[in-house]
């Protein structure tokens, strides 16, 4: 009976693996030909980044920009996405990449491969990632990677129909925020404390920004780094501006950097110290469109 038990248990485990792996590959294959990464409406600029740009640039106003920023996204995942857009848009000449005081600091390294971020981003990006990128994630967090493999397979199976033909739409977009900084300050009691950018430089996250910049340069695509407007209260807790400037000047000196940190906005344009609300996004997007026309 023991061997019958072993045989059946192994058969069940095998069935589960076949269901996960087979399901993943079948749904990936079905979706592969239909992942639409062609930029719509004549957008000339591809914008990628994390929540700062996701909330700041409304492509309905800045019409030359296709905003594919996503909250919490680190440069490793952005790089995978950018490659797909570049491959699908032969005429793409410029890519705008968000950079912030947070993204240069070490505190963002866990955004690459901590359990939470792996669980969130791997299911979305796994079909787009290169083997070295997968290896990095595995190296950084082995158990998290293995957990997320199962989740990735199931995610692709569950959402195969939903994502069919519009895969890129789950990889980012403009996030419309309501409410202003006054309300945000009132809600201080019910939110988690904001992360304070540390003054230790990122080792992992910035490496993938460099890789992305190099990839684009190799294809003669202009790279623009952008920092979106920040509320004055942000500076009271941010102590790593010197580090930010150092990274910009030493690591990315050859890249055009658009710094809008002091862009003139009122308190009512901010959702919180780092994110614009819909009103602020409207004003900033109009200004960005003018700036992009000039460069």
């Amino acid at each position: 009976m023991f061997y019958i038990f072993l045989k059946r248990a192994a058969f069940f485990a095998g069935l589960l693996v076949v269901f996960l792996v087979g399901g993943y590959y079948v749904t990936s294959a079905l979706n592969a030909g239909n992942r639409n990464f062609v930029l719509q409406n004549g957008a000339r600029y591809l914008l990628v980044g994390h929540s700062h740009t996701a909330c700041a640039v409304d492509p309905a106003i800045a019409k030359s920009v296709a905003n594919f920023s996503a909250s919490g996204e680190s440069y490793l995942y952005m790089g995978a996405k950018v490659r797909k857009f570049v491959e699908a848009n032969g005429s793409l000449k410029s890519v705008i990449i968000a950079i912030s005081n947070n993204s240069v600091s070490k505190e963002l390294d866990p955004w690459v491969a901590s359990d939470f971020f792996l669980g969130y981003f791997m299911p979305r990006y796994y079909p787009l990632m290169s083997q070295p990128e997968k290896d990095t994630l595995f190296r950084e967090n082995k158990s998290g990677y293995i957990y997320s493999l199962g989740k990735t397979a199931l995610d692709n199976i569950f959402y195969a129909g939903y994502r069919y033909g519009r895969y890129s739409s789950v990889l980012g977009g403009f996030e419309r925020l309501n409410g202003d900084i006054g309300k945000w300050e009132q809600s201080a009691a019910i939110r988690t404390p904001e992360a304070i950018p540390s003054d230790t430089v990122s080792s992992l996250n910035l490496q993938y920004l460099e890789n992305m910049v190099q990839y684009l340069k190799d294809r003669d695509i202009r790279v623009i780094l952008i920092r979106t407007p920040l509320h004055r209260s942000f500076w009271s807790r941010c102590k790593n501006e010197w580090l930010f400037q150092k990274v910009i000047h030493e690591q990315f000196s050859s890249v055009l950097f658009l710094d809008f940190k002091d862009f003139q906005l009122t308190d009512s344009d901010f959702h919180d110290p780092e994110h614009l609300n819909a009103d602020g996004a409207g004003k900033f997007s109009r200004h960005l469109e003018l700036v992009l026309e000039k460069i």
Partner: peptide, 19 residues
């Protein structure tokens, strides 16, 4: 029966990440 167990196992795998 096995379909039910596969479904339960899938749910566990899907939600397992946070430990």
């Amino acid at each position: 029966r096995w379909t039910l167990y596969l479904f339960f196992s899938s749910l566990v795998i899907y939600f397992l990440g946070s430990k």
